[in-house]
Design a protein around this nucleic acid. Sequence first.
RNA 1: GCGGGUGUAGCUCAAUUGGUAGAGCGUCAGCCUUCCAAGCUGAAUGUUGAGGGUUCGAGUCCCUUCACCCGCUCCA
Length: 514
Amino acid sequence: MTDAPAAPVFRMEDLVALCRRRGFVFQSSEIYGGINGFWDYGPLGTALKRNLKDAWWRDMVACPPDGPDGRPLSIVGLDSTIIANPKVWEASGHVGGFNDPMVDCRESKARYRADHLMVLVGADDDGSRRMVGFLEGDDAGREKAGKSLAKYEKREFDPANYAIRPFTQLAATDLSRVLGPDAKEPGSLTEPRMFNLMFESHAGAIRDEDSKVYLRPETAQGIFVNFQNVLDSTRVRVPFGIAQIGKAFRNEVTPRNFTFRSREFEQMEIEFFIRPDEAETWYPFWRDLRHAWWRSIGLTGENLVLREHDRDELAHYAKEGAGTCDIEYRFPFTAPGFGELEGVAHRSDFDLKRHAEFTGKGEKSRYFDQERNERYFPHVIEPSAGADRGTLAVLCEAYTPDDSRPSGVVMKFHPRLAPVKAGIFPLVNKDGMPEVAEKLHRELRVKYACEFDPKQSIGKRYARMDEAGAPYCFTIDSDTLADQTVTVRERDTLSQERISIDRVATYLAERIDG
RNA sequence: GCGGGUGUAGCUCAAUUGGUAGAGCGUCAGCCUUCCAAGCUGAAUGUUGAGGGUUCGAGUCCCUUCACCCGCUCCA
């Protein structure tokens, strides 16, 4: 990464402005002032995102490549609900994990997880002595706290004279005598406050604790809880995958960076179930396949990277395993750093085991492998991609300022993802040309998203198609009427060539369908 | 959640010490137009982000709030 090229040479606000101007992305409920962390897709953005999801579904579910064993992957689809029995989230660990109390320091503006915060206090504390905070596991911080306390009390520091207590066990009245880890005066720490990262609602008319439900924070659990249903209803056997595209919700503390960190977002997830001893084969397979897929839909530049996680940043379900990696993109707002598009994780058998435990089915729910004549909880390789983040990366990759063009900018989408595949124009809006163009449009629109536009000058129409990212334009002129040929204008090169009008559909098929 | 900045037509921006909210571009309609936002004529468009206050009078001053941007923080 040392000689990585410079970040994209455009300002994010220019892309945001284009997205709004051309109808890719709008702020949610904008006429009421918007709402933080929520975004709507306009006509072009909807088409773009749909094309991305369709490409994923086709390449991963309908027509996946061969696996490492040389046989086609077996992957089936699922569409589970956003709201489920709340026990799902107790089993998955989200109810606990999403409720971390946080402590803010008014003086240093730092924020700490309350359960990571400890205080050093005199062992013979009588309720009036100063306490000094430090972070659990931070030996240097703890030493510093000791020195600070000894200096304050003007005596030698002897660990035997001090006790360590969790911050969470302090009474509210004690806070005024606690010195924060990064503070100079005591009393700057707030009481622990809950940051509930799962959205809550209520199912049914009565709004009480029993009716409380959660909007799912990931689509994955819908797959795990349907694992047995899919096995029983579908002729699949390990190794196989279950795929799902759907909305998920996280009450992010700080939504930021356009659609990158939204509170409502869409995931494209596969849980691929494997034999426990084959993770070392399947994990690198999926990692490389997913990396290659993002490249195949147009993220071909240096801004796409694959990054293996360090051991200490792994999630609770992946501590032991074949590995976890992020597929990351260098967005203008992360540059020179990167932002995550997709995580590929070996989740081990964590989730299936947890649901076996929480449903009380236990070992009985183990999978029976007929070929091996043995029972086990399958392990899982999870490629989990963000549809909105992917769409945003595609928008960033496509955005190409070009002062030599009238539009000033061109969106160079991969033809497969382009929301409009072609513009179809009569060179002038008379002499029979619009009729021919409209007929061509009617034929092409059956298979490809095309725009017929007879108005204004040809230059304006090309410029508009540049901003919409249409890879091709077909123009009918007076020669068309004589020899049945049209001009193809290519978006990226601005080249023009003439082809027969009855070859237009084939021309598009060769370039869009591969 | 903290600090800083921004907010006027779809976009870019004007609007004197507080004194009738405007222009260009784009959009739309018509004319014209034989290949890259050409030209002519005309049209639509705003509770100046929202709410409150001061004032005879607020885009302008004050308060509150919302959204976006930058920096922290957070991201199981």
